Computed example of a mutant assay.
Amino acid sequence: MKARRSAGFSLVELMVSVVIGLLAVLFATRLMTDAERNKAAALGGSDSMQNGMLAMFSISGDAEQAGFGLNDPLIVGCDTVMADSEGFQMAPAARGTAVVRPLAAAVIASGGEGPDRITLYSGSSFSGTGTLRVTSDYIGGNRLDVDRVPYGFARGDVILVAPEKAGERCSLAQISSNPAALAPPPSQQFIAFGGSGFRFNSGALGAQYTGGAARVFNLGPAGSLGFRTWSVEGGFLRLRATDLGGAGAASQAVADNIVSLKAQYGFDTRAGELFQPEDGLRLGAWSNTMIDADGDGVAGNAGDYQRVVALRIAVVARAKNPERADPASGQCKATSTRPTVFATQDAEFTEAEAVQVDVEVEGDPVDWRCYRYRVFETIVPLRNAGWRPTA
């Protein structure tokens, strides 16, 4: 008995101990792996939440201000000539078979399943829609004769010259003279614009205007002119803007891991005399692209832009780090289907126009299915669309 007990463990006992130890290691490894996976998913969700909220907050803030000082019917939708020494360009858009650069609260360049590009315009003049009338024909040069003392206009302000017919060609320039130094009437009142050191249309206006049939609108100081274009490129939300240094020609990154930006116009589609914006606006239809909202047979004219009363905006953000592929199949299972936006119907006379978003980032070596995504949506009423003078 003593000899057997001093011999140590038997082979069977050793094998049982090894098996128990291996099971313990396997259990601990699985526990740690699951914990890391859950941690990565939680952190990824937090990243996408923060980035998406930042992106949506930034864009919706611009959308709420869009159209301020630009809501006169003579301005909305006019094809605008603008030359910026810092490189900002107005968004092109289709008008029938032509391409124009309309000045409106919002211009959406649809990207189909890919990201859209949203351009939002606003002025900053506290004089609202106060105007001057051009009294002499303008065929070139750097001076406009006007009908009264240019009260509220100052050197460096941005002005817009528009014919007294909606939808015609407008021109944007910057005041170079000091209106306050003009001799009082009966001396001729005028505004000089452009020249060295002034950013917008430093030369001529680029269009001609008839005396007595054109007006001059003050959009406010050049430094606070809110012309902004939002886009998504390479997984970044980017911004080009007239009021952001260095962002006129080249866009600047605002938030990372943003893979898509989508937008829809909300139209008031009431026909004929039923459309009375001064008495209140009504949302009748959503559309990913510009439509013939006023029923005149041409999509994208001034009347259609005047009927844009709201914007529907969606931002798709992804987690910062991809998840690992499934060891058995080699495929990622973090996301199986592309996100869908605008799936709900909340306009009076139209069905929802849902869009399945392409979230693949060009040049990313990781499969898009390895990331987790969050969708952020909001509806922004264009309050300035209803605050307009009677046409």
Rank of each mutant, 00 (worst) to 15 (best):
G45A: 09
A334N: 10
D367M: 04
F342Y: 07
F57L: 12
I258T: 02
G112H: 09
S85M: 05
N301K: 07
R199A: 00
N301I: 00
R338A: 13
T119V: 02
C170A: 03
D62K: 00
A214L: 04
D304R: 04
R30D: 14
V315A: 08
G280M: 08
S110W: 02
V216N: 06
S176A: 10
A180R: 13
R133G: 06
R30N: 15
G248P: 10
A94E: 15
G203T: 05
K320H: 09
D256I: 00
V308G: 03
G96L: 03
V341A: 09
V355E: 12
S136T: 14
R388I: 00
S17C: 13
Q189E: 10
A255N: 12
R30A: 14
L54C: 05
P221R: 00
A285H: 13
T33L: 13
E164G: 05
F68S: 12
A192P: 02
M56W: 00
L120H: 09
A40H: 11
Q331M: 12
D294L: 00
R372S: 13
Y265M: 01
L283V: 06
Q89V: 09
L205F: 00
V99M: 13
A347K: 01
L103G: 08
T119R: 01
D157I: 03
T135N: 08
L261N: 09
D296E: 10
A241R: 06
G61Y: 05
Y373M: 03
W286H: 13
Q345D: 15
A173I: 01
L225C: 05
V100H: 10
A83W: 02
V366W: 03
R228G: 07
T135Y: 03
V25I: 15
G77C: 07
V359Q: 05
S85Q: 14
A173G: 03
G284E: 11
A247T: 10
F9R: 01
E13W: 01
T229E: 12
R5K: 11
N142Q: 15
A249D: 14
Q174L: 00
A319D: 14
T390Y: 13
A319T: 14
D279M: 10
A154N: 15
R148L: 02
E164I: 02
T337V: 13
A204H: 07
L70T: 10
P102S: 06
A343R: 12
A253P: 14
A180P: 04
A166Q: 14
P277A: 07
R240V: 04
L14C: 11
P322M: 07
F236T: 13
F153L: 00
M32T: 15
G61T: 10
I75C: 05
